[in-house]
């Protein structure tokens, strides 16, 4: 349904464009949840904004590659242009529910605004439909809350409102960019189960972006791991957690505390992720990789298939179980 092909997003203010993401490709099917995992600055949010058509364009833009929704190209269309073209099937929620709502507008009006854009045929009783959306995201006392201002709601409630606004756009695909990072742990769990529920109920696809492997394990069907602007490994969630093959993915798991092995110290990956200005030819992870060979230092690293649906950009995929 959503197909991202070789997406390269670049900063275009300098003399030569600086690539933030390089050749990012994935497919997202109906009702599926794809988790994209990576450290901050690895380009996952920029990928999301590019898919959504929200890049600032004069400074950061899609340099090559395509975004297709139901086989229709939408790469360079902004959201309002997608509405005009009848291709507005993607919605997005953001990391900061505290600042993502207009502080001087009642939340009901903010939902209705989206409803009116996306449902021209059905202009009747938008308030009632807004209330239904609030019910759908489990906001208690929805009729009252329509009149509330964002600052009167808690962070978790605001994120629910954000989801309601996203749903008001009738999405086939929902992009969730770290939607729970700013929230308390208990609230996080509620939002995650809400997203899962909505995904099943509305048979909506979700692109879930996070730096948190635990969240991915709870929620996703498939996982793509991003490093320095590239997807380095993709697999179903069971396979990836059972048998990560890219040294970076493996390193990520080593940094996770394991309650069964409390005495063993955590093993952080040595070194730091490169800045986008520092990325050179070859594998971007090579400087930190203990398996690197001279082949890793030049050319581009192609996909290696491991099993059905499991592939990695690595010359030396790990054979061992973790």
């Amino acid at each position: 349904m959503l197909s991202v092909q070789d997406l390269t997003v670049s900063v275009i203010t300098g003399k030569t464009p600086l690539d933030i993401t390089r050749n990012v490709s994935f497919e997202l099917n109906k009702g599926e949840i794809l988790g994209v995992v990576g450290e901050s600055g690895c380009g996952k949010s920029m990928t999301a904004l590019a898919i959504m058509g929200l890049l600032p364009k004069t400074t950061i833009a899609v340099r090559s590659g395509r975004v297709l929704l139901d086989d229709q190209e939408i790469t360079h269309l902004e959201p309002h242009q997608r509405v005009d073209a009848g291709l507005s099937g993607i919605s997005m929620i953001f990391q900061e529910p505290m600042t993502s709502l207009n502080p001087v507008m009642q939340i009901g009006d903010q939902i209705i605004e989206a409803l009116l854009v996306h449902d021209r045929g059905n202009m009747r009783a938008p308030a009632a439909r807004a209330k239904k959306l609030l019910d759908l995201v489990h906001i208690p006392d929805a009729a009252m809350q329509l009149k509330a201002y964002p600052h009167e709601l808690s962070g978790g409630m605001r994120q629910r409102v954000m989801i309601a606004i996203a749903l008001a756009c009738n999405p086939q695909v929902l992009i969730a960019d770290e939607p729970t990072t700013a929230l308390d742990v208990t609230i996080q769990a509620e939002i995650l189960s809400l997203l899962k529920e909505l995904c099943e109920e509305l048979s909506m696809a979700v692109l879930f972006i996070t730096h948190n492997l635990g969240v991915v394990a709870q929620l996703a069907d498939r996982v793509s791991v991003m490093y320095a602007g590239q997807i380095v490994e993709t697999a179903s969630v069971e396979v990836l957690f059972e048998h990560p093959v890219h040294p970076y993915t493996h390193g990520l798991f080593s940094c996770l505390p394991d309650p069964t092995k409390r005495s063993e110290p955590l093993q952080p990956i040595p070194g730091q992720a490169p800045l986008i200005t520092e990325i050179t030819d070859g594998c971007a992870f090579a400087p930190r990789c203990k398996f690197k060979t001279s082949a890793c230092l030049s050319g581009s690293i192609d996909w290696t298939g491991i099993s059905n649906g499991h592939k990695t950009r690595c010359h030396h995929p790990l054979k061992e179980q973790k």
Binding site: M52, P79, H80, T99, L101, E113, A114, C169
Partner: peptide, 11 residues
């Protein structure tokens, strides 16, 4: 951020 939300709505 809320301006980005507004743009995302497609208005």
């Amino acid at each position: 951020d809320y301006v980005r939300t507004a743009r995302a709505k497609g208005i």
